[in-house]
Simulated scan of single mutants.
Amino acid sequence: MSIAPLAWTTVCAADEILPNTGVSALVEGRHVAVFRIGESRFHAIDNIDPKSGASVLSRGLVGNLGEHVVVASPLYKNHFDLTTGACLEAPEYSVRAHSVRIEDGRVQVALG
């Protein structure tokens, strides 16, 4: 059994995302939040806050909780790990994490 290759979708130019902020994108019909951490690290998770159903996670505050790089939901302040999508306060509200790469200066996302 072979694994299908990832389907990459170009979201924007890497320079269009300011360090330590996020943007929202529609990838294959799914709301995705793409974050730039520092100058060169990028992460993507679902943008829908599972507690409220609103597409707002890209607007949350980025920071650290211990060893976790997280975004705090702007609505209920739950913290989502940007690497795994895990909700640190309530695991039942975890979201999906997605693959991100930079190709020719463009951010590309593949749904995970």
Rank of each mutant, 00 (worst) to 15 (best):
M1H: 08
S2T: 11
S2R: 10
S2N: 11
I3G: 03
I3F: 12
P5Q: 09
L6E: 08
A7G: 00
A7Y: 08
T9A: 09
T9V: 10
T9M: 00
T10Y: 03
V11G: 00
C12N: 05
A14M: 08
D15P: 03
E16N: 13
L18R: 08
P19R: 13
P19E: 09
P19H: 07
N20A: 08
T21Y: 00
T21W: 06
G22V: 09
G22H: 13
G22N: 14
A25G: 02
E28L: 12
E28C: 00
G29N: 07
G29S: 05
G29D: 02
V32I: 06
A33F: 03
A33P: 00
A33R: 01
V34Y: 12
V34H: 00
F35N: 02
R36H: 10
R36S: 03
I37Q: 12
I37F: 12
S40G: 00
F42C: 01
A44C: 04
I45N: 03
I48W: 04
I48R: 01
I48M: 01
I48Y: 05
D49H: 10
P50V: 05
K51N: 10
S52C: 03
S55K: 13
V56F: 09
V56R: 14
S58Q: 07
R59E: 09
G60T: 05
G60W: 02
V62G: 00
G63I: 09
G63T: 04
G63M: 06
N64C: 11
L65H: 13
G66R: 00
G66C: 05
H68Q: 15
V70D: 13
A72F: 10
S73W: 02
S73L: 08
L75V: 15
L75Y: 11
K77I: 02
K77Y: 13
N78F: 15
N78M: 06
H79A: 15
F80R: 00
T84C: 10
G85Y: 01
A86G: 02
A86N: 02
C87V: 05
L88S: 03
E89L: 10
P91G: 04
E92R: 08
Y93L: 15
S94L: 12
R96L: 13
R96S: 14
A97T: 01
H98C: 13
H98L: 05
S99T: 12
V100K: 00
R101N: 07
I102E: 07
E103W: 09
E103V: 15
D104C: 09
G105V: 11
G105C: 08
R106N: 11
R106E: 10
V107I: 10
V109D: 02
A110T: 01
L111A: 06
L111H: 02
